[in-house]
C-alpha cells in the first residue's frame, strides 16, 4: 500500500466543517492516522478515441447534450477513475453502529475528500500529458452531472473490471459504484487549432 501523508491544511479543516471547533480539531490527527491505515488508493486512466468513446458509452453519451457539447472537436477522450478501497467506509459504518458518530462522520467525509483529491491529482496528470502531446484538455465531467446519465457508470465499471480486476469494485442496481468513495470522470483532448 502506498504511504499517504494527509496534510491538515486549512482547506481540509474547512471541508470537514471543523473551523473554529478546537475539540473536534484535537481529535483529527488520530482519525487521519486511522484513515491512512485503512485506505488503499488506486487510480485508473485510459485514452480512447472520441468515436470509440461514443460507441462504448452508447446510448448515454450520445443522448447527453452536455457531453456532446463538451467533446465537440475532441479527438480523444480520457477515462479516469480513483478510489480508496472499502475499508475506510466499513470503519465509518462501524463507528456509526457503535454510536461514535463524530468519528464515523469525519471518516466518511475524509473519504470523500481523499477520493476527490486522488481524482484531482489524476486530472492534473492527464492535463500535463495532454499538453506535452501538443493538445489541450476540456474540463472533466462525470456520470450523473446534468443530463449525463448515471447508467454510464456501467461502462466505467466494465472497463475497470476488465483492465484492473484486482480492484474491489461493485455496481449497485442504481448504477452507483461501490465502495462509494470511488470517483469517475472523463475529459476531452483536442487540438488547439
Amino acid at each position: 500500500m502506498p504511504a499517504t501523508r494527509i496534510e491538515i491544511s486549512k482547506r481540509l479543516i474547512k471541508y470537514l466543517q471543523l473551523s473554529g471547533d478546537q475539540d473536534g480539531q484535537a481529535l483529527l490527527p488520530e482519525i487521519l492516522a486511522e484513515a491512512e491505515d485503512l485506505i488503499e488508493p488506486w487510480s485508473f486512466k485510459e485514452r480512447v478515441s472520441t468515436e470509440d468513446f461514443f460507441k462504448l458509452f452508447h446510448p448515454w453519451a450520445g443522448q447527453s447534450r452536455s457531453i456532446c457539447s463538451l467533446l465537440e472537436g475532441s479527438k480523444y477522450v480520457w477515462l479516469m477513475a480513483a478510489g480508496l478501497g472499502p475499508a475506510l467506509e466499513e470503519r465509518s459504518s462501524e463507528y456509526f453502529e457503535k454510536r461514535e458518530h463524530f468519528k464515523g462522520y469525519i471518516l466518511n467525509r475524509l473519504g470523500s475528500w481523499l477520493a476527490e483529491e486522488s481524482m484531482r491529482k489524476l486530472d492534473r496528470e492527464v492535463e500535463r500529458q495532454t499538453v506535452l502531446s501538443g493538445f489541450q484538455a476540456t474540463r472533466r465531467y462525470s456520470p450523473g452531472y446534468k443530463d449525463f446519465a448515471l447508467q454510464a457508470q456501467e461502462v466505467f465499471y466494465s472497463i475497470i473490471r476488465s483492465k484492473r480486476p484486482e480492484i474491489e469494485l461493485h455496481l449497485s442496481q442504481a448504477h452507483i459504484l461501490m465502495p462509494e468513495k470511488t470517483v469517475t470522470a472523463l475529459k476531452g483532448e483536442f487540438s488547439p487549432e
Binding site: 470537514l16 466543517q17 471543523l18 473551523s19 471547533d21 475539540d23 473536534g24 454510536r99 461514535e100 458518530h101 463524530f102 462522520y105 469525519i106
Partner: peptide, 19 residues
C-alpha cells in the same frame, strides 16, 4: 452557530450517557 461535526461530538456524549 456551529457545524454538524461539533453537534455530533455532543451527540456522542449523549449516547455515552444514554447507553
Amino acid at each position: 452557530r456551529c457545524h454538524l461535526p461539533s453537534l455530533l461530538l455532543k451527540v456522542d456524549a449523549f449516547y455515552k450517557g444514554f447507553n
